[in-house]
Design a protein around this nucleic acid. Sequence first.
DNA 1: CTGTTAGCGCCTTCAA
DNA 2: TTGAAGGCGCTAACAG
Lengths: 310, 310
Amino acid sequence: MELASMSDVARAAGVSAATVSRALRGEPGVSDATRRYVTEVAERMRYAIARDASSLAGGRRYAVGVLTAEGGRGDLLAGAEAALRDAGYDVLLYVLRDRAAFFERLPPARRVDGLVALGVTLSADETGALAGLDVPLVEAGQDDPHDALRVAADHLVSLGHRDVALVLTEDADESYDDVLVAAGLATRPEWTLWSSPTVAGGEQAVEVLFDGGGRPPTAIVTAHAAVAIGVLLRLRRDGRDVPRDVSIVSLDDCELVRTVGVTAVEGAWRDRGARAATSLLTTLGVRAPDTAATVRSLVGGSVAVPGGRV
Amino acid sequence: MELASMSDVARAAGVSAATVSRALRGEPGVSDATRRYVTEVAERMRYAIARDASSLAGGRRYAVGVLTAEGGRGDLLAGAEAALRDAGYDVLLYVLRDRAAFFERLPPARRVDGLVALGVTLSADETGALAGLDVPLVEAGQDDPHDALRVAADHLVSLGHRDVALVLTEDADESYDDVLVAAGLATRPEWTLWSSPTVAGGEQAVEVLFDGGGRPPTAIVTAHAAVAIGVLLRLRRDGRDVPRDVSIVSLDDCELVRTVGVTAVEGAWRDRGARAATSLLTTLGVRAPDTAATVRSLVGGSVAVPGGRV
DNA sequence: CTGTTAGCGCCTTCAA
DNA sequence: TTGAAGGCGCTAACAG
């Protein structure tokens, strides 16, 4: 038993293939009754369109290529995939290993309608090579976590925290303090630190925050997951209880922080991927389904009211 | 300037399209000279085959669908992608979110030559639904980490460890002890534990290993990354130095353990993904490139000679 | 609103 | 060893 083709459906429905095509794609020029009937017949026959043929005839491929780095973030990818699939696009995955070879051979050539680069920073030459494919390209990854910080700050404030320290990684700027201020928090210069995006960076940040003579914060927000882990480890080693003595929030949500139990702002990375995909879809003229629905909330157990019990 | 099509190449080379097709695909029936010339012309024109047309005409799609779970392992995916791409196959990514909808609508229908399920356990019904696609399916994820344990055990033995404890997760069986024996280690019943695949599980394992009256091990091997983290945290909290007092090896290599600095057996997950893909390719009749080249070694800093300094 | 007619770019017979 | 012809399943003009 072969899979049903469009002409099979047409025959079964007693119409022409063109009508089936129009009906199924929601094209105008088909009566409601016909469209309904054809749709029903197609479903009953479990008809699945042959994209190859469709692409060949229509010129559009209904596929986008997603470029990721080896060891890239899975949630970035998942977010993009979700948005693309919801829009009816196939997702061709390209994991960049041998970059030179990739940009030389350009495997996505003639295979995709657009490209999304997720968490890979493209050089000018590489961007130029991709331009040869003659399809739109969207890059994601340079986005900043202001939104996530907003969520975290609001939550901490609602719990009564007033003394919140911020451990940023190198690519951040002072504008993050503004978010804290907007949330109703007082900022202090010594509570905004920069560290390397590593566990060691987090450990050092704790030293700075608690060794100086100043008042120690009741909560620490980190921009990077590894830093959050470092903060946690150092606080514990110093005999401080998390979250009783100090709360921790990671703006960077990943398997790592979840497993260790650090509270993180959820969905930030998924969002980025989805936004990139949506942006590309818009360029492609597709009215992309709303992405705003992504949940952004806190998960984890490293946050409590300041100085008290949970 | 449009992209060159096969007939463009044919015209430029002064041959028929059929000859170009045969030459480029390595089909027999073309003189060496012609093949070389055609290949050269195609390269010069930067010809890229239109897969849509190729699939339509040839019946094979040169694409396989990869099913992954949301939040699935990136390295499993990367391993599969590498193997598939090396074999000239496109990789269609399907992140399973709404499983019911996925198996009802079956988006890969008529789009792939085969399916690889990575880290998703398929129910009988789901497998049945996929069978309707009439393409081969390979699942990966149930593989066991005996190989990784072998690497870890050999390394620990070479450092002089004799007392090695094993913290397995629920899906493991006693056969792991055999690997330790083969590596020249003495096993003891109380040194083989089962725990939940969580940080808490690792912490509890340490309690059991060190609170009992028996001799404590000098090294702990865990099958799961989160467990390794738990072991590390608990040992530290108990005032034991890692790796001076106790070495830790995680058979499960991931961002998590690397970031925290736990030694892990590298490449295990990549390998699984690649093996699954290779297996599928074999089913598809493709002589898959050798995957054995994947490095399997130890990375990280949580291992030292027993009882001594590094 | 619906059907008919041509291809889309390639692979696969079949002849030469 | 090569070329010519047909068709894969669908969409996009055209007619009705």
